[in-house]
């Protein structure tokens, strides 16, 4: 904290603080409302939508967890996200390394082709991808989400990793090469440790995308045992559309951990995002 920030606020600054505060609170309120509503009974939700619960019913959360099979959904989402994100970031880093540090024919062309993925909307191939995955016998397996999930994040991840590689001078890699290291060793022992911060950023951003993915998850998984959270939540809220407290509870269980994780990692999420959108 610099001294200047501790100076007393003038009227304009109070106005700025007040306006911003009201807008942010109004916008954040639905999330708070969701959390405390999940502890109320249906009758209470109906009679007094604003009021805090007269009695905190933790059993709502337990019931939603059991009825909705949220444990399975969580596990599936964790597995899909973990594998897809690792795969995507690792492959993208290797590709960015190849595009910036190695010379080979077709290098520029490959990168250009990859960039197609930046502007392509996922719905534009969803149907053909469905029939393709069916023919590959991957439908209703986690791989139906992992492989396309990783593939659809690649363009964006390579694009940013490449920019990061370009921002670092290749001196270290060249020194290692003079010392007789082969390309494989240079990649693992010199480049990866150098671009590690960018890789972590991409892990965070890709995790948000893959974890929240709905369209592919909706089309490629029809077996309840394999579903992921976003689709599970939509179906759950459809089945129990009149049981408000149950749906509020499911919403709370599925979003609050993510929000807590976000507030812990906030710095990385925001730093990553700004790094990506600037250039």
């Amino acid at each position: 904290m610099s001294r200047a920030t501790e100076r007393r606020r003038n009227a304009a600054e109070w106005l700025q603080f007040g306006t911003a505060g009201v807008i942010v609170l109004v916008m954040f309120y639905p999330a708070i409302w969701m959390v405390y509503s999940s502890f109320k009974s249906n009758r209470e939700i109906f009679r007094a939508p604003f009021a805090l619960p007269s009695q905190w019913r933790w059993e709502n959360l337990i019931e939603a967890w059991n009825v909705g099979g949220l444990g399975t959904l969580y596990l599936n989402s964790v597995f899909v996200t973990l594998v897809a994100v690792s795969m995507c970031v690792l492959f993208a880093t290797a590709a960015a390394f190849a595009f910036t540090r190695l010379e080979f024919p077709g290098r520029k062309l490959m990168y250009r082709i990859l960039l197609i993925g930046l502007l392509l909307p996922p719905p534009s191939v969803a149907i053909a991808l469905f029939t393709q995955l069916r023919d590959m016998h991957l439908l209703n397996t986690p791989w139906a989400l992992i492989l396309p999930g990783a593939a659809w994040q690649l363009a964006f991840t390579v694009f940013l990793m490449r920019a990061y590689f370009i921002s670092i001078r290749p001196d270290m890699e060249e020194a290692a090469r003079l010392d007789g290291a082969n390309t494989w060793e240079i990649f693992w022992h010199v480049s990866v440790p150098m671009v590690w911060p960018a890789m972590l950023t991409m892990v965070v951003l890709n995790t948000i995308s893959v974890w929240n993915e709905l369209l592919f998850a909706l089309l490629f998984i029809t077996d309840d045992a394999q579903r992921t959270l976003p689709v599970g939540l939509v179906r759950f809220s459809g089945y129990h559309s009149t049981d408000y407290s149950l749906v509020f509870a499911a919403l709370t269980i599925t979003t609050v951990p993510i929000l807590i994780l976000y507030f812990i990692l906030q710095r990385h999420v925001i730093a990553g995002l700004t790094a990506t959108a600037m250039d």
């Binding site: 492959f91 993208a92 290797a94 590709a95 190695l102 990859l114 993925g117 396309p148 593939a151």
Partner: peptide, 18 residues
């Protein structure tokens, strides 16, 4: 080239092919 191969293969199979 080998380093770009996994990414290009994945991209080709699940983006370009469909």
């Amino acid at each position: 080239m080998l380093f770009a191969a996994p990414a290009m293969l994945l991209f080709a199979t699940f983006v370009l092919l469909p």
